[in-house]
Design a protein around this nucleic acid. Structure first.
Length: 466
RNA sequence: GCAGGGAUAGCUCAGCGGUAGAGCGGCUGCCUGUUAAGCAGCAACGCGAGGGUUCGAAUCCCUCUCCCUGCUCCA
């Protein structure tokens, strides 16, 4: 018994007998009395060609009846191929395990499909070249993430999915409740009485593990989270999901420069790993997906310095550009950069990912560290061509008095953040971290244009099928 | 949520007032150690739903539903 990958990579010797199991990609019959069946089992991008002679006892009734998508078990001898591939399996037995009952309406017909069609058949799409490759790339990058952090002394912290913090400062949240949705208990003021709810208070799905992971950072120095995150925003775009995976490292005794350096080193590491480990899948993306330059783009990414600029400089660049380029939204110091501005900066101005730092405090979250100028905070965004923001990070405000002042400015009550404030009361240290959108990272790396196609079962407004 | 675009055979689309087409896929046959196979043929849709205009609508108008893209939000 061998996987397709083992059979194709020299782990099965020519002349050796073996068995493979998988799904047929398509079937070609030759009147010379022979059928060719490319087989995939997900172990690699390439298929193993099964060569079935008509001398097989079930040739007429089984082999001739095979269609794309059937599951089979084939045994035979690995031989050098007379065709374009290196090896193939000369079969001496083919067992049909599961047939495709209506080849005409099988949604994964052996032909090109639109991304939309694949999405509508999310349960069958992993059988395609494209989504199979995405699954392997996603796995590869996940492993590289953990390997990078482990090798660099970071601890993986499992921050909670359910949170009782009612203001993590990152958008609309999904309520978690066991109350009767039709007739919830009501208090004297006529409001839903969450004190009777499962947790005795209102709870939600997390929008970020950052606040929690900071606690572990203040004890273990280098930590990270890697898990699902939920945002109930009604965002219908190619780069938003209601449920997505986020990677959030947090480092102690560190400032914004350390944070940006970590982001750069980290991204280069995982992309290098992807290029090394999934050359087969990347070659496919490079040939068929998007701008068809993902390999070159990633090679450039890992071998060049990140471009960096202050927000103030970005604004100057954009103001100058706006004399020739028509922006829908005006640019001036103090306003947040719009998608069109971010795209201009990384796609037109520098032509590769760029780190923009030190934003006005008014447009950033309360926990970001106030700079000495008193009007900007030590925040950074990493902008990638085609995707926009893939990383948002900052140095955190470690000074309790400044943190409290910022919360009050933002209309937040410091009393609601007792445990978070405690970190600043007991052994506070400068620290920093960032959040990396995993799906955006995969989309950038592969050239796939929509994050819905790089997560197995995408959840977006009005879509929670499968 | 806002703004555009779209919904026609299994899939991708063309047709844009006179009773519906192509390519791919499927099926059949011929050919072929084949591999985006080649050649020939066959089957398959009545045009998202509901109203209206008209002698006549997939084609025009209205309403609704769904999808896509962009924007807002951010990862």
């Amino acid at each position: 018994m061998a996987t397709v990958h083992e059979a194709l990579s020299g782990q099965v010797q020519v002349g050796e007998k073996t068995e493979v199991r998988g799904w047929t990609r398509k079937v070609r019959h030759s009147k010379a009395g022979i059928s060719f069946v490319p087989l995939t089992d997900g172990s690699c991008f390439d298929t193993l060609q099964i060569v079935a002679p008509n001398s097989l006892p079930n040739y007429e009734e089984v082999v001739k009846a095979l269609t794309a998508g059937c599951s089979i078990i084939a045994t035979g001898t690995l031989v050098e191929s007379r065709g374009k591939q290196d090896y193939e399996l000369a079969a001496d037995s083919i067992e049909l395990v599961g047939a495709v009952d209506d080849p005409e309406t099988y949604p994964m017909a052996p032909k090109r499909h639109s991304m939309e069609h694949l999405r509508e058949h999310a349960h069958l799409r992993p059988r395609t070249n494209l989504i199979g490759a995405v699954a392997r790339v996603r796995h590869c990058l996940s492993q590289a993430v953990h390997r990078y952090f482990h090798e660099n002394g970071f601890y993986w912290v499992h921050t909670p999915i359910i949170t009782g913090s009612d203001a993590e400062g990152a958008g609309d949240m999904f309520r978690v409740s066991t109350l009767d949705a039709v007739n919830p208990p009501v208090n004297d003021a006529g409001e839903v009485d969450y004190s009777q709810d499962f947790f005795g208070k209102a709870t939600n799905l997390t929008v970020s593990g950052q606040l929690n992971v900071e606690c572990y950072c203040m004890a273990l120095s280098k930590v990270y989270t890697f898990g699902p995150t939920f945002r109930a925003e009604n965002s219908n775009t190619s780069r938003h999901l209601a449920e997505f995976w986020m990677i959030e490292p947090e480092i102690a005794f560190a400032d914004l420069e350390d944070d940006a350096a970590l982001a750069e080193d980290f991204l280069k590491y995982i992309f290098r790993a992807l290029l090394d480990e999934r050359a087969d899948d990347m070659a496919f993306f490079n040939q068929h997906v998007g701008a068809k330059d993902c390999i070159q783009r990633l090679e450039g990414f890992v071998s060049s310095e990140f471009a960096q600029m202050d927000y103030a400089e970005a604004v100057r660049v954009l103001e100058a550009a706006s004399k020739k380029v028509k922006f829908e939204y005006p640019v001036e110091f103090g306003v947040d950069l719009q998608s069109e501005h971010e795209r201009y900066l990384c796609e037109k101005h520098v032509g590769r990912p760029v780190v923009v730092k030190n934003y006005p405090k008014e447009i950033k979250a309360f926990y970001m560290r106030l700079n000495d100028d008193g009007r900007t905070v030590a925040a950074m965004d990493v902008l990638a061509p085609g995707i926009g923001e893939i990383i948002g990070g900052s140095q955190r405000e470690e000074r309790l008095d400044v943190l409290d002042a910022r919360m009050i400015e933002d209309g937040l009550d410091p009393a609601d953040y007792g445990w978070y404030r405690d970190l600043r009361r007991y052994g506070s240290v400068p620290h920093a971290g960032f959040g990396l959108g995993f799906e955006r990272t995969i989309a950038y790396a592969t050239g796939i244009e929509n994050v819905r196609d790089v997560i197995p079962f995408p959840r977006t407004p009005r879509h929670a099928d499968f």
